[in-house]
Amino acid sequence: MSEVKPQLGVILCDLDSYPVDYIECLTPDASGISDNPVGFFENPASWQGLPVAYAVARGARVEPLVNGEPEAIEAFWSASEKLAHCPLVITDCGFFFYARKDMRQTANVITSGLDLLPIASVLTSKDIGVLTVSESLASKLLGDHVLSSRLVIAGMEAEPGWSTMLTNDHALGNGWDQALLKEGVAAVAKREFGPGGRLANIGVLVLECTLLPEFRQEIRKYTDVPILDVASFALNALGKGFDAGAPAAGSSATLSQ
């Protein structure tokens, strides 16, 4: 019997550089929808062997999306219909969480890492940290959230390169690269998790921005709290997760099934 490989669906913001509205990448070496490097959701090699289907939410330009404008949210629903065949669908921007504000059901879709806030709330009695591309925009988005009184929000927008991610055209090389983004993450994590930092006493950290999961190990240098993000959730839900099929060091057997 051949190995079952469930297909991950990814809804993408509307960028001019995307040549098509829908594409399936069945192998990690398949041609993706952009030239962004591994670590970005648009690169199929980021998904550790999972086949991926991409649907561009045409009309969900970045600037309208991060402000929750209706045309961007309608574009989300249209894109989600194209991915109805996928057992799990995620998005490439945490501000698709605005879709939670209407009463339609998302079925197989996790709109954002912010969908993981209820899980965070049962992991700790302390405050919950949210690391986001924009503190002001995330504060607006989460102002009426049931957990708002427990949220401590820190943003990346003041760090070099990160503000570009809030514009409609944030193509590779347009004022940023991965090394610059990583430096920004390290600076914010060191400051906010350090003495007197806003995240120093949280019990869980949730990553809103989908650029942040690739820098989890950098964040981990500064905190021991659980870190929740949508990319790790998807890889564990559809991929091999904890059971990678190899025994742990010093073990004579794999985990029982």
Results as ranks from 00 to 15, higher is better:
residue 2 S to H: 09
residue 1 M to D: 05
residue 191 R to D: 14
residue 246 A to D: 08
residue 37 P to L: 10
residue 104 R to F: 09
residue 227 I to S: 10
residue 134 S to V: 03
residue 218 E to R: 15
residue 68 G to S: 04
residue 46 S to T: 07
residue 43 N to C: 02
residue 168 N to F: 10
residue 82 K to Y: 04
residue 188 V to R: 11
residue 257 Q to H: 12
residue 254 T to E: 07
residue 112 S to D: 02
residue 227 I to W: 12
residue 130 V to H: 11
residue 172 L to R: 13
residue 139 S to E: 08
residue 182 K to E: 15
residue 154 A to I: 15
residue 64 P to T: 02
residue 77 W to Y: 15
residue 19 P to M: 03
residue 173 G to N: 08
residue 188 V to W: 01
residue 26 L to P: 01
residue 1 M to S: 13
residue 105 Q to L: 15
residue 48 Q to P: 00
residue 80 S to H: 15
residue 45 A to E: 08
residue 162 W to S: 05
residue 88 L to W: 01
residue 25 C to H: 02
residue 71 E to M: 11
residue 217 Q to P: 01
residue 30 A to F: 05
residue 213 P to T: 05
residue 187 A to G: 09
residue 3 E to M: 06
residue 221 K to V: 09
residue 79 A to R: 10
residue 229 D to S: 08
residue 61 R to I: 01
residue 212 L to N: 07
residue 18 Y to F: 12
residue 6 P to Q: 00
residue 62 V to K: 10
residue 30 A to H: 05
residue 243 D to Y: 08
residue 68 G to V: 02
residue 149 S to T: 12
residue 148 S to T: 13
residue 67 N to V: 12
residue 12 L to D: 03
residue 5 K to A: 00
residue 207 L to I: 06
residue 68 G to I: 01
residue 21 D to Y: 01
residue 69 E to M: 14
residue 62 V to S: 09
residue 171 A to H: 13
residue 207 L to E: 04
residue 56 V to H: 04
residue 2 S to P: 15
residue 176 W to K: 07
